[in-house]
Design a protein around this nucleic acid. Structure first.
Length: 568
RNA sequence: CGGGGCGUAGCGCAGUUUGGUAGCGCACCACACUGGGGGUGUGGUGGUCACAGGUUCAAAUCCUGUCGUCCCGACCA
């Protein structure tokens, strides 16, 4: 490709509304343009990257015998009503009527459609297992789209669905997919990690997320120092302390703590560690109009997913209002303690704390030297908190570290949730009807592009991993328009490189070197060649890899070979 | 949904407080010079100042409303 035929749309300045680095660079490098909130146009340069990502995905899907198909983006309401999700799915589902006033939605996912297909096309266990996939635009009407294509409303997803006669078959395909995903993200050249995920309301026995590691990631993931254990922090369980609780040695004392509300304020005021203070959070209970108290150590964070799953607690978790707090405790938030008439559930670590500080349920007052069993009834205990750096790994091997990640893939054992609702049956070998078991497997294709940039960039721009770069090599002749000899040499080299199967972007227009180099680095082409009159005299060309510190002169005769060896 | 910010040329911004000829930098076009890291000069193109209504002799500027867009948001107990 030549710049004269493939104009770059790079920007020198960063658009003001782009917050994170990948969004800024995608705009600056001319990969995407915003149309409206959460809607992006992919420019020619961006599409080249997107296609590379898609093709690697396709290749690995074929290897595990998944079959590509394409389903409509517009879906009839009937199927969603049949699965029950027409009512369950909130405003994220964009609904509309056609000219005959029939109801439709824009597909945020395709379980209903694929299950409908399966029940029509599959009738015998002999046709199973089968896996279908598509790469297609999805629409989710996000409350707050942000970070460019990282969380957009319309996005491209690879979604695959498998159908099985039993759980054993599903497990087999699931494991194959797990491996395929590992291969895919490895081929992308990204630093990633498969983690145990919360399977949410869908249930089912297995779910893994694939995260690209990046500080700006929206998810926190915990992984073990000495085993392969890794889990989304929503899911990572905190082990109860193994040793005995310390003895009650202090007297329960009431202390004036005027104006001190937060754990930080109280611990500082009393010169006590935050881990020695307990905080009491009031949330809606499972029973109507009831309130439940959750107790945590001051230095621990509530895990809302875990808490919401407790049978005594309303799901999803909802904090009590200030009025409710006052009605139950007689004081304002800030002085609440666990000595209450309502159900009290303490985190394992909070229940393990002796001689602690807590609210006195009286404005401006706290207790110190409080002990479970002696001063307050022993609480019900549960795992309520997020794991923290240094916690013991739940599998007993090593300790946990916490890093941030961008969720780019998710695989799921669905079981019969949809096949049961939609009556997707086949006959088994005994001739009796059996509901198929399903799995589903997604990759956020557009998000992968953003995540790749988020993980690979420097002050000059994007650094594409080789396999998803829009071009393999940039060729920058200096003042080509001034020298026939240079022009001929550049054209010849361009042809040689192209014939060798390399994707070359040649800067064939009148442009100053500095400007060309700045663009080449901004758009992140992995290999760069600069050809000038001086080099030509010695039959040499200057080569520099995008990450190399130094440039080097290479003999023109060897350059094709060198690049091929680097491409692998 | 709540809170906050911002809407002036393709991009980045000033001008709004105190109403009076719509500006700057980049980009773009032309020409010249320049020629190994976003170069210089001269001359240009491009704006119903988000939209609607109001106040006024006069509105980017004041008032009312609408829309768009970005960020933040339940550890407080």
């Amino acid at each position: 490709m030549r710049v004269s035929k493939f104009p770059l749309s790079t920007l020198k300045e960063t658009p003001a509304d782009a917050e994170i680095i990948s969004h800024q660079l995608m705009l600056r490098a001319g990969l995407v343009r915003r149309l409206a909130s959460g809607l992006y146009t992919w420019l020619p340069l961006g599409i080249r990257v997107l296609r590379k990502v898609e093709n690697i995905v396709r290749d690995e899907m074929e290897k595990v015998d998944a079959l590509e198909l394409l389903m409509p983006g517009v879906q009839p309401a009937e199927l969603w009503q049949e699965s029950g999700r027409w009512d369950e799915y909130g405003p994220e589902l964009l609904r509309f009527n056609d000219r005959h006033q029939r109801e439709f939605c824009l597909g945020p996912t395709h379980e209903e459609i694929i299950t409908d297909l399966a029940r029509r096309e599959l009738s015998s266990y002999k046709q199973l297992p089968v896996t279908w996939y598509q790469i297609q635009a999805k629409f989710r009407d996000e409350i707050r789209p942000r970070f460019g294509v990282m969380r957009s409303r319309e996005f491209i997803m690879k979604d695959a669905y498998s159908f099985h006669i039993d759980q054993a078959s599903l497990q087999k395909t699931y494991d194959l997919m797990h491996q395929a995903y590992t291969n895919i993200f490895t081929r992308f050249g990204l630093d990633f990690r498969p983690v145990i995920a919360d399977s949410g309301s869908i249930g089912g026995s297995g779910s893994h997320e694939f995260h690209v590691l990046a500080d700006s990631g929206e998810d926190a993931i915990a992984f073990s120092s000495h085993s392969s254990y890794a889990a989304n922090i929503e899911k990572a369980s905190a082990l109860p302390p193994q040793d005995e609780r310390a003895a009650a040695t202090e007297e329960k004392t009431i202390i004036e703590t005027p104006g001190k509300h937060s754990i930080e304020e109280v611990s500082e005021f009393l010169s006590v560690k935050t881990s020695q203070c307990l905080k009491t959070l009031l949330v809606d209970g499972a029973e109507e109009n009831s309130v439940v108290a959750l107790v945590l150590r001051g230095d621990h964070e509530l895990n809302e997913i875990k808490a919401g799953q407790l049978e005594q607690v309303a799901s999803p978790l909802n904090f009590a209002s200030e009025e409710q707090v006052r009605a139950v405790t007689g004081c304002a938030p800030g002085s609440v303690g666990p000595d209450l008439e309502i159900t009290v559930i303490a985190d394992h670590n909070a229940a393990h704390t002796a001689n602690f500080v807590c609210g006195a349920n009286e404005d401006g007052k706290h207790f110190s030297g409080v002990n479970w069993g002696r001063d307050i009834a022993e609480p019900v205990t549960a795992d309520l908190r997020n794991v923290t750096e240094g916690d013991n790994s739940p599998d007993g091997k090593g300790t946990l570290s916490i890093v941030r990640g961008i969720e780019v893939g998710h695989i799921f054992q669905l079981g019969d949730k949809y096949s049961d609702k939609l009556q997707a049956n086949v006959l088994d070998e005994n001739g009796s009807k059996k509901t198929m078991t399903m799995g589903c497997y997604g990759i956020g294709v557009t998000r992968v592009v953003a995540a790749a940039i988020e993980q690979n960039n420097d002050e000059n721009g994007i650094i594409w991993p080789q396999n998803i770069a829009p071009f393999d090599v940039a060729l920058a002749p200096i003042n080509m328009q001034k020298s026939e000899r240079l022009k001929d040499a550049a054209e010849k080299l361009y042809k040689e490189l192209s014939d060798a199967g390399l994707e070359v972007l040649m800067f064939d227009q009148k442009e100053r070197l500095g400007s060309m180099l700045a663009n080449i680095e901004l758009i992140g082409i992995p290999h760069r060649l600069v050809l000038g009159e001086r080099g030509l005299d010695d039959a040499k060309i200057e080569y520099k890899g995008r990450c190399d510190k130094e440039k080097q002169d290479i003999s023109l005769d060897n350059i094709v070979e060198l690049l091929l060896s680097k491409k692998i």
